[in-house]
Design a protein around this nucleic acid. Structure first.
Length: 877
RNA sequence: GGGCGGUUAGCUCAAUUGGCAGAGCACUCGGUUUACACCCGAGAGGUCAUAGGUUCGAGCCCUAUACCGCCCACCA
């Protein structure tokens, strides 16, 4: 009885069939008590703000391929999924929803508003989880986490309290980034700078009158005239000769009348503007620091709503930009505006809402970061965590070495509430459990800090909070540290750096042994996708159009580590076609499958009477397996997928399937063997299609998800068969080539005369003549010692489409020998390398046992190949 | 100002650590050979950005230049 598949591959139908089954059968579940080697990876938790975007899909594809590969190799594999509450981002989204109803969060009040965000989370969080499943991500849903879960919130509180008690969290009044729209403090990372064309205003400040001095002015330059209301000094560089005379002198602040002392500070660039700077310690970071050095007064003139405060006198109540216009006009009226130049400089905007950020003096909570950063730097320097590709370590170091204290409090409602309580007596209580009364004065009137924590504070704990920390759970013991973290380079600072610091601090070990950095997906013009450009592509829509397996394969194929991917329809079509090709190959194979067929072992195959094509494809299969595993070990998914594509399409389909049409029944065991192995090799990249087909053909086991991953097999390696088959293929190509040049119809059978003086080649050709007959439409083959090439064309015509093919240069023993020799050299090089590695005591002792084992196995494989190559070379002599 | 990356076929990108420059798409020519026209076969297309250097040998290593991109920074 023959089996059948629908003529057309329908991805949607195939995709819908498998995931629920896999999940229900528990294939994705890790086991904290298993003895098997561990492969553990935490999912970068998507924000609950919306739906899965294309960057997520790339990220998930890479993770899932790596995870599935390890699972098939027999690892105790954990891929822990979850989501991030994403404080400020989510709050903004929900506030926008509210504003459609004409309401603000203040209309609801804190409690109702937070309830409303939870509703949002339920709806959109569910959507994202569905999408993650839909694209085939094989995560362990029994361990799903949310950063706002009870357990994770508990971890947040534990960390906060511990850091506070060690003095690594403190409350302080400093200049911070303030978003006047979000009405919250921001960290340095949440401010994005963009270059804009601004105006540089030159303003004349009168000098303090002195006996015997004419009225005189000093000129300062500023891009923000409105901040002058808060000036408390003017500064020059200490070595600037022009202004030495003013040492100890003062200027008078126009419009306000305040006396501004002259200070000398190295931070002033004498070459910029006039070399004199107005100093506004309360609204500029450089000025703030200068103010600290010279003990200057801090006058805040812009408030949290970005309007001028009472300290701004007449300008009180004006928005900062209105105030700027008014002040410039007033200065001009008084003849104090010397000139206005244009200048390109950068201004900071809120990462989330793009409002221009205002530096403000404010009391906030900070993490003292240097003591945490140092071990995190060391861990990467020493290689305990490595970056893939390695260059990203530079970016990490650069930031870590210049890191500044982290402002962690946010004036938001959606987030982990800061566990600090204030008593009217001045006491501040920071504790894991809510305090009932003040330990100092006994008052029960305590007020909790209204602020919440930066969302990255909780995500920074993700690698261990998700495993149950601070409880010492079996999961924590088994799965920490993770093997690898797979994420985009845009969150190295926000997230990777924080996880490194917290992991080392609280777990005393790095959170992961490697960080794999993915690129960004760009559009066909290589532009970043953004909502404002309107070039955002919905990944699920792509999947609908091309099939999930095809999109996944395209991402794997194009995504060299750290490299951005430009996607286009053309690109995706080519991988859709690949999926179709696999489908159709299966349909061909199924014509020969009968009930009772099974997959032979490679040892059994070796005992059979195999054709040249069989021996060739088996050897190629083994080599492909070797290459794919080697590439995946280096996380080179683009190489692995390229190898698979080439092997499956251009070797298996284009040559092998065509060659065995001569003797399909004889080749059936090999045909089934190779196809079944190919499906297993492809599975991490194309999970749905491979499962569908694998279930249709003979197989052992209940699912390809848990079938073993193919590896190089020394039973199958056969270099001699490879070179012989390739010779025949070259001959066939040459005949087709001549045919095509002479415009001989494909269907027209021709007779061919070939020339070689080498008896071995002649014998080989004679033995394999059927392949030439079949694949090049040849009806008669004559082999002669030599022929006269100059007569080639004329003879072909005169003899009625008989072709003459000179074999010189096409195949000869010298070039064949050279080829095998090169190959042998390569193999020997590998052997030397592995030998050296394995004789290195520190490698054998320190590297994980399974890695050492893997290297041993590869060494044995290479030795085997070397023997075979040597034999093949002997035969050529 | 500092750092990182890139420049290879018309387009998008590879090249297993220095050893015969490759794929996909597009293009040209020929084909509905019952797995597949989402296909098959045959082709054309390269001064590896530029200039030096190291080497038996350089797309790959070194130096400099040009252009493009990204990240960071207290650019008044």
């Amino acid at each position: 009885m023959t089996r059948d598949l629908p003529k057309n591959f329908n991805p949607r139908e195939v995709e819908s069939r498998w995931y629920a089954l896999w999940e229900q059968r528990g294939y994705f579940r890790a086991d904290a008590t298993s003895e098997k080697p561990v492969f553990a990876i935490v999912m970068p938790p998507p924000n609950v703000t919306g739906s899965l975007h294309i960057g997520h899909m790339l990220n998930m594809t890479v993770q899932d391929a790596v995870v599935r590969w390890h699972r098939m190799r027999g690892f105790n594999t954990l891929w822990l999924p979850g989501m991030d509450h994403a404080g400020i981002a989510t709050q903004i989204v929900v506030e926008r929803e509210l504003s459609k109803e004409g309401k603000t969060r203040h209309d609801l009040g804190r409690e109702l508003f937070v309830a409303r965000v939870w509703e949002w989370k339920k709806e959109y969080g569910g959507k994202i989880l569905h999408q993650i499943r839909r694209i085939g991500s094989s995560c362990d849903w029994s361990r799903e986490r949310f950063t706002f879960d009870e357990g994770l919130s508990n971890a947040v509180r534990e960390v906060f309290v511990q850091l506070y008690r060690e003095g690594l969290i403190y409350r302080g009044t400093r200049l911070i980034n303030w978003c006047p729209r979000c009405l919250s403090a921001l960290s340095d990372l949440e401010v994005k700078y963009e270059t804009t064309e601004s105006k540089l205003y030159h303003i004349r400040y009168p000098l303090k009158s002195k006996p015997g001095r004419e009225a005189a002015f000093i000129e300062v330059a500023t891009t923000r005239p409105e901040t002058m209301l808060g000036d408390t000094a003017v500064a020059v560089h200490p070595d600037d000769k022009r202004y030495q005379q003013y040492k100890g002198d003062a200027a008078i602040l126009p419009l306000v009348g305040r006396e501004l002392p002259f200070v000398q500070d190295m931070a002033v660039d004498p070459k910029f503007g006039t070399g004199v700077v107005k100093v506004t310690p309360a609204h500029d970071l450089a000025d703030f620091e200068m103010g600290q050095r010279h003990n200057l007064e801090q006058v805040s003139v812009i408030g949290e709503d970005a309007r001028i405060t009472p300290a701004g006198g007449n300008y009180q109540g004006l928005d900062r930009f209105e105030a700027r216009q008014r002040i410039v006009a007033d200065l001009e009226a008084q003849g104090l505006l010397a000139k206005v130049e244009s200048l390109s400089n950068s201004i900071g905007r809120c990462d989330r809402c793009s409002t221009v950020v205002e530096p403000l003096l404010s009391t906030q909570w900070f993490v003292k970061i240097k003591p945490l950063a140092e071990p995190a730097i060391e861990a990467v320097e020493s290689g305990r965590t490595r970056f893939i590709p390695a260059n990203w370590a530079n970016t990490y170091f650069e930031w870590m070495r210049n890191i500044r204290d982290w402002c962690i409090s946010r004036q938001l409602w959606w987030g982990h509430r800061i566990p600090a309580w204030y008593c009217s007596c001045g006491e501040i209580i920071v504790d894991k459990t809510d305090p009932q009364k003040c330990p100092t004065c006994g008052s029960g009137e305590l007020r909790q800090d209204p602020d919440v924590l930066d969302t990255w504070f909780s995500s920074g704990l993700w690698p261990f909070s998700t495993l149950g920390w601070p409880e010492q759970t079996p999961d924590l013991k088994t799965f920490y540290p993770g093997t690898v973290l797979i994420t985009g380079y845009d969150i190295i600072f926000f997230w990777v750096a924080r996880m490194m610091m917290f992991g080392l601090k609280f777990m005393n070990d790095v959170p992961f042994r490697a960080v794999y950095i993915t690129g960004l997906i760009r559009d066909a013009q290589r532009q970043k996708m953004s909502k404002s450009k309107g070039n955002v592509v919905d990944p699920l829509e792509l999947c609908d159009r091309f099939g999930i397996d095809a999109v996944r394969f395209a991402f794997a194929r194009m995504g060299a580590p750290g490299t951005d991917i430009a996607i286009s329809d053309d690109l995706l079509e080519s991988y859709r076609n690949f999926a179709t090709k696999i489908w159709n190959a299966a349909r061909f194979i199924l014509r020969y499958v009968e009930d009772g067929d099974r997959i032979s072992s490679s040892a059994e195959l070796r005992q059979m009477d195999l054709s040249l094509a069989d021996r060739w494809i088996l050897s190629r299969l083994s080599r492909a397996a070797q290459e794919v595993n080697g590439s995946l070990e280096q996380y080179n998914l683009h190489e692995a997928s390229r190898t698979l594509y080439r092997f499956f399409w251009h070797e298996f389909c284009d040559w092998y399937l065509e060659m065995i049409k001569l003797h399909p029944e004889r080749s059936k065991p090999v045909l089934l063997y190779v196809f079944e192995n190919a499906l297993r090799m492809l599975h991490p990249f194309m999970p749905f299609l491979t499962e569908e087909l694998w279930q249709t053909i003979p197989h052992t086991g209940e699912s390809v998800v848990i079938a073993p991953y193919p590896t190089a097999d020394s039973n199958l390696a056969d270099p001699a068969a490879e070179s012989q088959a390739e010779m025949i293929q070259d001959v066939i190509t040459k005949v087709r080539n001549i045919r095509s040049e002479m415009s001989v119809d494909t269907k027209q059978a021709v007779s061919v005369r070939m020339a070689t003086e080498d008896q071995n080649v002649a014998n080989l050709l004679t033995g394999a003549r059927d392949y030439v007959f079949k694949l090049a439409s040849v009806s008669k083959l004559e082999i002669v010692p030599r022929l006269d090439g100059s007569k080639l064309v004329a003879q072909a015509v005169a003899a009625g489409c008989a072709l003459e093919v000179p074999l010189e240069g096409l195949i000869d023993r010298d070039s064949e020998r050279a080829r095998l020799t090169r190959e042998l050299e390569k193999v020997r090089k590998e052997i030397d390398g592995l030998d050296r590695k394995l004789s290195n005591a520190s490698f054998v002792e320190r590297a994980p046992a399974d890695v050492v084992e893997e290297n041993r196995r590869r060494l044995a494989d290479y030795r085997d190949q070397a023997t075979k190559l040597t034999t093949a070379l002997e035969r050529l002599k």
